[in-house]
Design a protein around this nucleic acid. Structure first.
Ligand SMILES: [Zn+2]
Ligand SMILES: [Zn+2]
Ligand SMILES: [Zn+2]
Ligand SMILES: [Zn+2]
Lengths: 132, 132
DNA sequence: AACATTATGTAATAATATAACATTAACAAG
DNA sequence: CTTGTTAATGTTATATTATTACATAATGTT
């Protein structure tokens, strides 16, 4: 389970916006949306985003430079993330598959490196887009 | 095996630079390095990078906005990539593990989406940094 | 030669992210 | 309740990453 964490004012404003959004949101789209609430500068957005990522409430989709709310209440605080991304409509979903996460969390290669964290992004066409 | 592909002048200059580099290179570091060879503008770099990524000679490390040469001659042309990244010294290696790539290439979740491509980035401490 | 495709050159600008510094809020210890 | 500490905020400026738009040249095909 995710640890409860009391969000600050800016963090809450920005989390609520991302959480309500159907798609991943970009930092400057967020900024534009929250300007009426008094958040005026990029840095205010990025600071809240950093914190929200750190505590696992949101994740960054690296290939898109965009952020989505964690859709997975049992997510290991941003340490192990997997997403499916439709290359046509850009729909993104967080993958919650215990076999996959177990497999990746236990993965070891021959480098002797032990991994404390991973991020996986799958690309393809979603059902809707495939049938077009 | 990777299909042979004749690189253009700019593509070759930029590929050679990345290929010789021990670490992933960022676009503007590349630009700085190739200015003496007549490549003056960011766009010239980005165009070459795009093509090199497309044909699988290099890969983008999304979490770092940086590029490395493919270290894996049997790599499925950028469709299936996995990397290990040391969070201390930033050393990056391409993982070449057939079990892993088979597992991920065949992965299906319950969304009905079939994936044509993936990118996986593992994070941790490399041997050297762990022993410090 | 005519056409299509790919690559290049150049300037301007857009989009993403951080540095530096000053101030304020929240919280715990004494 | 006040002192010290940490986390969060506000603000300006700037750094970094990436693309648009348009013109030209090289390459490959029929
Ligand atoms: Zn999650
Ligand atoms: Zn789709
Ligand atoms: Zn490769
Ligand atoms: Zn290291």
């Amino acid at each position: 389970m995710q640890k409860e964490y009391i969000l600050s004012k800016n963090q809450k404003i920005i989390f609520d916006l991302i959480d309500k959004s159907a798609e991943p949101m970009k930092a400057y789209a967020i900024l534009f949306n929250v300007q009426k609430k008094g958040i005026k500068a990029p840095l205010q957005v990025y600071r809240a985003l950093d914190k929200l990522v750190e505590i696992g409430k949101i994740h960054k989709i690296e290939s898109r430079n965009a952020f989505i709310a964690c859709q997975n209440s049992s997510c290991q605080i941003s340490k192990a993330t997997a997403f499916s991304i439709c290359e046509s409509c850009e729909k993104v979903s967080e993958i919650n598959n215990s076999k996959l996460s177990k497999y990746l969390s236990n993965f070891e290669d021959d480098s002797g490196m032990r991994y404390s964290k991973y991020n996986l992004e799958f690309f393809g066409l979603c059902k809707k887009c495939k049938s077009k």
